[in-house]
């Protein structure tokens, strides 16, 4: 009997091996199919979609739909393409990710290494806030953003994403710092190191992996958000809202190839992050669901 290396692998014969690979391949095709459809059809002239087969490769290859989607397509009333909305998304995502990650790191540090009475309750409240349906905050948020003069602006969206991102970023850092030896922090305290000094010199240097996980998680979530963008975006709509407007527009011919190119443009940043740092992305997903 060959040594069982993988935990739950069972002895299987040739036929069941074929069966297993067969199923795995079918599911691979299922997951790949929409991506193939998007890429292939974004490179076709429109006539090849309306008068041809969506599952086929282009006969005439063209980048025109991409150019259209990026800089010429009608979004709402303006023929601007998705470019300005892509920039909106970047202007929104970068500060929101940076701020929520920094706050999460500090909170996680306080909650694990400077524990005080009631810190468990605070963490519990933060944790629950990660999972609320955001419909429950939409009405007051609209009112408050209006009062603050931030409605329909990028800073308003940044505020919203920071506020509702702190829960997850704190969760990540707290769980990570919880396994860091508290004795080291104690020793540094006895040596006279203060709060920030310990954070800067002891905690941060070991925080690399969790910073990557948190940044990726926040980036993906905020980039992909639609509800807040659609509710509070106003004149500064992010990419997801613009893509939806492009696809749902009821005027004129439906330019499917442009829609597909636009969809890929909206997906590209998070997809690139996934390809480069998929390992960390998966860790973030798991940490966000199976805590501990």
């Amino acid at each position: 009997m060959a040594a069982v290396e993988q935990d739950t692998a069972v002895r299987t014969g040739g036929i069941s091996r074929v069966f297993i690979y067969g199923i795995l391949l079918i599911f691979m095709l299922f997951y790949m199919m929409p991506l193939f459809v998007m890429v292939a059809n974004s490179l076709k002239p429109l006539g090849e979609i309306t008068g041809g087969n969506m599952m086929a490769l282009p006969e005439v290859w063209t980048l025109e739909p991409w150019r259209q989607a990026w800089s010429a397509a009608q979004i709402g009333v303006e023929p601007t393409g998705l470019k300005p909305y892509f920039l909106n998304s970047i202007l929104m995502v970068v500060p929101a990710v940076v701020i929520s990650t920094i706050l999460g790191a500090l909170n996680g540090y306080v909650l694990t290494k400077w524990s005080f009475r009631g810190d468990k309750i605070i963490f519990g409240l933060l944790l629950f806030s990660c999972f609320i349906p955001f419909q429950i905050v939409l009405i007051p948020m609209a009112t408050v953003l209006g009062k603050l003069g931030l409605a329909g602006s990028i800073p308003g969206l940044v505020l919203v994403h920071v506020v509702y991102g702190i829960g997850f970023s704190t969760l990540y850092f707290r769980n990570y710092y919880a396994s860091f030896p508290t004795e080291l922090v104690r020793a540094a305290m006895i040596d006279g190191a203060g709060f920030f000094r310990i954070f800067w010199r002891i905690m941060l240097p070991v925080s690399g992996p969790i910073i990557v996980v948190t940044v990726i998680w926040q980036f993906t979530n905020i980039w992909n958000d639609f509800l807040f963008g659609a509710s509070f975006g106003g004149q500064s709509q992010p990419m997801t809202v613009a893509l939806n407007n492009l696809v749902q527009s009821s005027t004129g011919v439906k330019e499917y190839n442009v829609h597909f190119a636009g969809a890929i443009l909206a997906a590209l940043p998070t997809l690139i992050v996934y390809i480069i740092a998929g390992r960390f992305f998966v860790r973030g997903l798991m940490a966000g669901s199976v805590k501990g």
């Binding site: 597909f260 969809a263 909206a266």
Partner: peptide, 20 residues
């Protein structure tokens, strides 16, 4: 390959499947 859809926005997923 099984996991990459999780990195996409539901708007992208919706657009792709709407036309598929």
């Amino acid at each position: 390959i099984y996991l990459y859809p999780m990195a996409l926005s539901f708007i992208v997923t919706g657009t792709a499947w709407k036309w598929i």
